[in-house]
Simulated scan of single mutants.
Amino acid sequence: MTSRNACSPGLMTLLRVGGVFSPERLEATDILMAGGKIIALGNDFSIPKDWPIRVVEARDLIAVPAFIDQHVHVTGGGGEGGCGTRCPEITAREIAAMGIGTVVGVLGTDSISRSPADLLAKVRGLGAEGISAFMYTGAYRVPPPTLTGDIQRDLAWIPEVIGLGEIAISDHRSSQPRQDEIERLVSDTRIGAMLAGKRGICHFHIGGGKRGLEPLRRLLSETEIPADQVIPTHVNRHPALLEEAADYALAFNASVDVTAFEDAGDGLSGFDAVSRLLERGVAPERITMSSDCNGSLPEFDADGAYLGMKVAKNTTLIADWQRLVREGVLPLESALGLISTNVARVLGLHTNKGYLAIGFEADVTLLDRELQPQQTFVAGKCIYDVSRTE
C-alpha cells in the first residue's frame, strides 16, 4: 500500500521523506509509526507485503517535530469591550494547518463568561479531533478560578491541567496581586505538580506596566522557587520590557516566551524580539515563541479606556519562525527549538514530545522547501494534509 494520501487507513504508517530533523539532522529518511509512537528510524525500510501499513511517499518534504503552541485561547479570548468583543473559538484544522500538533489552552481577562470548565471541555474536544491538547488552570485574576476549588487538586486530579496561567501582572487588567500572593500561587502550583508528577509551570502574562518583570525577579531572588517554575510571556510588548527580559533570562538562566504579534504596534515582532534576545547573549534554548492565538489584541488610551481590538492568529507565529530561518538568524535545527523542543522542555513534556526519536510520540510535521507545513501527524494519525484541502 503506497500512497501520498497520509490520511488513508492502516495500523502502521511509514513516512518516506527527504530528510529528518529531530531537531538535529538525522541520517534517516524513513519514519515508522505505530501505536501512536515512533518505532523505527532509518533508510529504505523493506516492508513485508502482508503488513497492514500505509506508506506516505514525501521525498520532497522534510520531517520535523510537530510544533507546540503553549499559549492559545482555544475558547476565544477578548471581552474587554463588552460581550460583543468576545473572540471566537479556534478549530482543530486551524491548529493543524500551521504544523502545530500540541496546544495549551488558556483563559485571559474574561473568566466570567468563560470558565475553566469551558476550557477543559474545549481541550477534550480538540483531543477527540486528534490535537494533543492541555490547559492551564486559572486566568488573569487572583485568586484564580479553578476546576476543583484548589490549584493543587486541579494539577493532581485533572490530567489535562499542566500548570497555572495566564496570571496577569504589570497590567491595568490584572488583579494587582501582592508579592506574597504571587509567591503563594507559584508555591501551590509547584507542590500540586510534584504530587502529580508534572512540571507545573506558572505562565505569567506581562503587561506594559511600569513594574515589568520586577515581581518575578523578586520571586526568584527572595524565595527558593527555581527559575524553570515560571514563564513570562508577551515579553516583547515594548522595547524596554524586552531588554528587561534579556537581563532576567541571563541573570537567572531562565526561559522567556516571545509572542508572535500580528501587529506589534509599540512592541517588537516575534522575529525582531528573538533576534534581539540572541544579540543580547540569551541562549536559543532559553527562548520560546507562542501565538496568543484567538486572544484579543485590544487597544487602550492613556487612561486605560477601551478603543478597539483585533483577534490574534497563529499564522504570524509560523511566518516569524520561517523568517528567522530564511534570514539566517538561526539554523533550522536551533530554530525548531523555539516552537517545539524548548517548549516541550518548559512544559515538562520533553520525555515524549519535541523530538523525533524512537519511543517518542509520533507527532510529525512535514515541511516543503519554503518551510510551509504540508502534513501534520499527531500520535501517528494524519490530522492535516494540504492536498486534501485544496
Rank of each mutant, 00 (worst) to 15 (best):
S255H: 04
I39G: 00
Q176S: 15
A379F: 09
Q229E: 12
P52C: 07
K37F: 15
I231P: 00
E166P: 04
L241F: 13
A357G: 15
A305Q: 12
Y248M: 00
P144L: 03
P88F: 07
T148R: 14
L324G: 08
C382K: 02
E299V: 12
D385M: 00
T341G: 12
G36C: 05
L332R: 08
A156T: 09
H73C: 06
R153K: 15
N294L: 11
I182N: 02
D368S: 01
R280P: 07
L32S: 01
A28W: 00
V56D: 10
L278V: 07
A260E: 11
G359P: 14
T146D: 02
E89K: 14
H350C: 12
A58Y: 08
P159E: 10
Q375C: 15
T91C: 15
V364D: 01
S296T: 13
G138P: 09
D303C: 13
G125E: 07
S22R: 03
I39Y: 02
G295Y: 04
E370H: 10
R237F: 04
A66P: 01
T341W: 11
W321L: 07
Q152E: 15
Q375S: 04
E299L: 12
T148K: 11
P239E: 04
V256A: 05
R153D: 15
I339C: 09
T365R: 02
L155D: 10
E57Y: 06
I100K: 12
T259D: 12
D272K: 07
A335H: 09
T148H: 11
H205P: 05
G130F: 11
G348R: 14
T109V: 06
G295C: 08
D171E: 04
D69V: 11
K122R: 13
I151H: 06
D301A: 00
D150V: 12
E370T: 10
V343S: 06
A254M: 06
I162N: 12
I167D: 08
L366I: 15
L195S: 11
L120H: 04
D292F: 02
S3F: 05
G18L: 15
C83S: 14
L216G: 00
Y136A: 05
G108D: 04
G200A: 15
S275H: 09
L336I: 09
I131G: 01
A193C: 11
V235S: 09
